[in-house]
């Protein structure tokens, strides 16, 4: 019974990981940028939510649209005016650029928002759904569903809208896309904006489930990376699956082996998948062929 509870906790956590992974994997799949600042960008959403909550008592769930829009604009500008300038460079140049951005953002947040751990506790935080011996906090359940809804919406957006199709076309063959009148600079900016916006939303949701500080940015980015690897690059279903697997593996290993080795196990899992099946568990040519 305890095991079942642990697995349920893992799945709920996995929904959050999936969401943070989707944005990361979208950006990677389309623009070939590994955004090491992804976690820091998610925290921008978290701080926005936190300050709206403490200043005007805005419910975190209601700040989701605000997070989405503002972080979208941030990401769009960043790609349009910074990343697009170096996007054709060698991969490690892009890696360092985003790492430089991460250092900047983390230190910016530490300076202006302090290094203290924060969290948001609305009045309904303590209530739970109880089924037999299984306890599921309503907040975690709601967070999980918001994550799944965002994932589905993202999939629909890419499949059904013109912009979504243009994003896919650009990732498959940038030259052919240009021939068809698509402006890749704009598509890249929209993609990065979307990836960041989703990260921002996951940051908003993060405030409800755990305490955060600028120092956890790196951990979030690495989890987003693991999710993308597990699921395969640039696939929404893949990221969902990857997120759930990572969530369950983390909670299970914490329960069975202890909290202290959960990073090592997550990384071990990632390296194993990388070496054995580099295209990910559900990897197929989708947005982008895996570019080495």
């Amino acid at each position: 019974m305890v095991l079942l509870q642990v697995i349920i906790n893992g799945l709920l956590l996995g929904g959050f990981y999936a969401l943070i992974g989707i944005g990361f994997s979208l950006v990677w799949g389309v623009t070939n940028i590994i955004n090491l600042a992804h976690g820091a960008i998610a925290l921008l959403g978290a701080y926005l939510t936190y300050y709206l909550f403490v200043s005007i008592q805005l419910d975190p769930f209601l700040s989701i649209p605000l997070s989405f829009v503002s972080i979208f604009l941030f990401g769009y500008m960043l790609q349009r005016f910074v990343m697009n300038l170096v996007v054709k460079a060698q991969i490690f140049i892009l890696l360092i650029l985003t790492f430089g951005l991460e250092i900047f953002l983390v230190n910016f947040m530490t300076t202006f928002f302090s290094a203290d751990f924060r969290s948001v506790t609305p009045s309904y935080a303590g209530e739970s759904l109880v089924i037999g011996e299984i306890v599921i906090p309503y907040i975690r359940l709601a967070v999980f569903f918001v994550c799944v809804i965002f994932a589905i919406a993202m999939g629909l957006f890419l499949d059904k809208t013109w912009t979504g199709k243009a994003i896919k076309a650009t990732s498959l063959d940038i030259e052919a896309a240009m021939m068809s009148g698509i402006n890749p600079a704009k598509i890249y900016a929209i993609t990065f904006g979307l990836g960041s916006a989703i990260a921002g939303v996951s940051g908003t949701l993060l405030t409800l489930t755990q305490a955060f500080s600028p120092s956890i940015a790196g951990g979030l980015t690495l989890r987003a990376f693991i999710v993308s690897i597990l699921g395969g690059l640039g696939r929404i279903e893949g990221a969902l699956l990857g997120g759930l697997i990572l969530g369950v593996v983390e909670t299970l290993s914490s329960y069975l082996i202890g909290e202290s080795y959960k990073n090592a196990i997550a990384f071990g899992l990632m390296v194993l998948v990388l070496v054995l099946k580099p295209s990910g568990l559900m990897g197929r040519k989708y947005y982008a062929e895996v570019k080495h």
Binding site: I96, L97, G100, L101, I103, F104, L105
Partner: peptide
Amino acid sequence: GMVLGLLI
């Protein structure tokens, strides 16, 4: 830290 990030 911010300056280092910008420098990079």
